[in-house]
């Protein structure tokens, strides 16, 4: 019996989330008594085989076809469905990223099977599995059961720490040529627009966040300065984007970006559920708030109970002073 782990890559560069999926997948495969095999779809993925083996892939299926020039949810979903049939897989998993969940949904629709998104724990003993999955972006958990011939589950992002297997697996390469209709090209990426080549909200080691307490678009300037000083970026709460002070791409939260920096400096942010679930994967949180009882303050490692407009410039100044 086989489990397939969908490993996402961007034109050959393996996504970190894929390593989380494999770390999760190889333990689940062991518990379910099935073989853990990776699937990489599209061109240029050959270079990733060694890494996939180190993370526990006994077999690496490399799927290629003329339609698979770039990411395409329908073409990827159809490829996966054909591979499931071809290798008799009974379990399919991926990391619960936008792409991972979308492709598994495509697969589930094609196989007419359930799909359980964003699991934290899976108990694969028995025909009916017990799982714990994420609701409300992570602020609630749902215990559920899954009954299906093909078990399709994604693992919530940032839940598993990616780590190589104690012993590398074989990583035997198996080429796969799906039979894809040319019409599936209708949802393949046709072009890309690059807005930033530098660090981004989801990769920054430091995020300086501002909420309603910042007060205006202009008042974000000191936050920008501090972020630049720390090699980080500015993020914001939903209240800020709703007020039009910052673009939505800066929003940290359930409907924005999930961040996981070394330190999140949250200023003038109360820490409503919507925001918290986007920030909770931060390694450390430093809150700057006038309200000692604010949700974000009680969840922070450190806090300064004061007006951010005074504290943030003082921090920037102190950093510059120490650097001389």
């Amino acid at each position: 019996m086989t489990m397939l782990v969908l490993c996402d890559h961007d034109r050959g560069t393996l996504a970190d989330a894929s390593l989380e999926a494999l770390t999760f997948g190889r333990d689940l495969a062991a518990a379910a008594g099935v073989s853990c095999e990776a699937v990489v779809i599209g061109k240029g993925a050959e270079g990733a085989v060694g890494q996939l083996a180190a993370y526990g892939a006994a077999v690496v299926h490399l799927a290629s076809h003329d339609v698979l020039t770039d990411f395409g949810p329908e073409a990827w979903g159809e490829t996966l469905a054909q591979l499931v049939a071809s290798c008799g897989a009974s379990v399919v998993t991926a990391c619960g990223t936008d792409r991972g969940n979308e492709v598994l949904a495509q697969l589930a629709a094609r196989l007419d099977e359930p799909f359980v998104a964003n699991c934290r724990e899976v108990d694969p003993s028995g025909d009916t599995w017990s799982l714990t999955r994420v609701q409300w972006g992570g602020s609630l958990l749902e215990d559920a059961t899954l009954t299906a011939d093909h078990k399709i589950v994604s693992v919530a992002h940032h839940v598993v720490e990616a780590a190589p297997a104690s012993e590398p697996a074989a990583g035997t390469v198996a080429a796969f040529s799906p039979d894809l209709d040319a019409s599936l090209a209708r949802t393949v990426v046709t072009d890309r627009v690059v807005l930033s080549r530098g660090i981004t909200l989801s990769t920054a080691p430091v995020v300086v966040g501002g909420g309603r307490g910042v007060g205006s678009a202009e008042a974000f300037a000191p936050l920008e300065e501090l972020a630049a000083e720390l090699g980080g970026v500015v993020g914001c709460s939903r209240a800020v984007t709703n007020n039009g002070w910052r673009p939505h791409s800066d929003q940290v939260g359930q409907t924005g970006t999930r961040i996981a920096p070394q330190v999140y400096i949250a200023s003038g942010i109360s820490g409503a559920i919507q925001h918290w679930v986007g920030a909770m994967a931060s390694k450390h949180i430093l809150a700057i708030n006038t309200d000692r009882e604010a949700n974000i303050v009680t969840r922070a490692d450190w806090a300064v109970i004061a007006d951010l407009h005074k504290v943030i410039p003082a921090i920037t100044e102190e950093i510059r002073r120490r650097r001389g």
Binding site: D143, T298, V304, I305, V311
Partner: peptide, 29 residues
């Protein structure tokens, strides 16, 4: 369908002891 909800619960929160670094700009150091 094949996915059945059993119950909802809140994740166990890691209760962190928040260290208050100060109450004004002098906390910058």
């Amino acid at each position: 369908g094949g996915q059945l909800r059993e119950r909802l619960h809140r994740p166990v929160e890691q209760v962190s002891e928040t260290v208050i670094l100060g109450e004004g700009p002098e906390a910058a150091a």
